[in-house]
Design a protein around this nucleic acid. Structure first.
Lengths: 255, 255
DNA sequence: CTGGTCAGCTTGTTGGTACAAGCTGATGCA
DNA sequence: TGCATCAGCTTGTACCAACAAGCTGACCAG
């Protein structure tokens, strides 16, 4: 007799029923009231159980509507493709990827100047609080917030390549612009982490409880020193990152 | 007047105080009772607010003890290092990494035979339900559960390299063993995802609410076809994955 | 037919109570 | 001294009640 608390039993039963398809993705669960009767429990107990499933990312709730089983089609993101250093990394890759997937891309953009945080300063190898230029993208897919991307450039680079600090897009892509200025990116250092979103991130990406964010930090290097640091924040439930390493001729053979 | 619910105000205030160091990592928050008086709210409201912070991964609670601000020292995991294909990928890398960090590694190990799931079958390019050999590792750092690693081998490979199916470690590392059998891994395909843990994963990794898991799926290829699929599950709050791409001579220059 | 209102469903918020169960330090007995 | 016990703290579980607020479809007035 491993007596589990009642609210866990509720969660376990519903979790199993979601797994075996009793409640399919997109379907609505019975209302709290119905579940109260089914499990002979108080509304608080039912809510405790449901909140477990919410924080597991299995269901979501909305006032007036009820609880819905979440569906999760993930979006693949090939991160090592950029090894091809002539590929423009900004905007274009995102636009073509999304369009190829038959979805509609949309992004807002802004440029600002601000002192480097500890994190950014370390990666760009500059003193903390040094001025940096931030180029910030907020990206949507089919009008659903998808990711935010913040790219920081050190001031010495901006002095030499002033268009970085101008508002508005750089049509040919920043990588090509910098290459034309004689600054070529020859290597990347990628860091990937996962955590729960801060309230700010939850607001920007419109995610509720139970959805982690994927943090992708890419530091780009010239032959001499770091020239940019890009921090991309993804919805963890909708994205998967891929890296291809070595010889993968056998991968695309068949299938 | 953007009237926020009281429990959100509680969470906001405490979140800010955690951020600015009023409550440092490792410190204990005031008890629910104290917070009730401070915020003039019922215990339920206080608990609602605290549960927000728990699900954000900022604090954790334990019965009888109280709420504690979580600290997060992350463990760096260099994933692209394995591009050096002579490096044994199993166990050794983990052991040396952890030991170098001044921590104590410990792992349990088991081998079993089971039919391929849809997921595994696709990646190994075999029919679903085909027999595969699973070599499973449960790894600890300083006796804290750290990750689980499940490596699946297709049956055709096991037929040719029978030691894969034997229980117990392969001393020289599976990669070297397979190379000695004439099967060399020449490429990897990595997929990285984040989500909230299933109850099973939460149990194995001993993580509570508010901590996502990082899923690292690595499919290894010979020149002909896929030869293994490794799924590693990390605690998201304690691990960060790194990839080095291209020429990073400038990275280790100074600092 | 159109448009607005509203009843009646849903979840969200806040208050209360009671007891169970885990942890710690003080107490007191051997 | 050493050890068991227990009081008194903590959070965990479970119940009840009431009202707020969001959504939908039915209804009714124009």
């Amino acid at each position: 007799m491993n007596k589990q608390p009642k609210y866990r039993q509720v969660a376990d039963v519903l979790r199993r029923e979601i797994a075996n398809g009793t409640y399919a993705p997109g379907a609505r669960l019975p209302s709290e009231n119905d579940l109260q009767q089914r499990f002979d429990a108080s509304r608080n107990t039912i809510r405790n159980g449901l909140s477990l499933l919410v924080s597991e990312g299995l269901i979501s709730s909305s006032q007036g509507l009820g609880y819905e089983v979440k569906s999760h089609e993930v979006f693949e993101l090939n991160a090592s493709r950029f090894e091809n250093l002539t590929f423009p990394q900004n905007g274009d890759a995102y636009n073509t990827d999304v369009t190829n997937a038959g979805r509609r891309p949309h992004q807002t953009f802004r440029v600002e100047m601000l002192p480097a945080s500890q994190e950014i300063a370390e990666r760009l190898k500059v003193e903390p609080s040094t001025k940096t230029v931030l180029r910030f993208c907020h990206r949507y897919v089919d009008d659903v917030p998808w990711s935010t991307q913040a790219t920081y450039y050190p001031s010495w680079l901006v002095d030499a390549s002033p268009r970085l600090a101008e508002p508005g897009d750089i049509a040919e892509g920043t990588t090509r612009y910098l290459a034309a200025q004689g600054i070529e990116q020859v290597g990347y250092f990628d860091e990937i982490a996962a955590r729960m979103p801060t309230p700010d991130e939850a607001r920007l990406l419109e995610i509720g409880a139970g959805v982690p964010v994927l943090l992708w930090t890419r530091t780009g290097y010239s032959a001499d020193r770091p020239i940019r640091c890009t921090i991309t924040t993804f919805r963890g439930d909708l994205n998967r990152m891929n890296y291809e390493i070595g010889d993968l001729a056998a991968r695309s053979d068949n299938t």
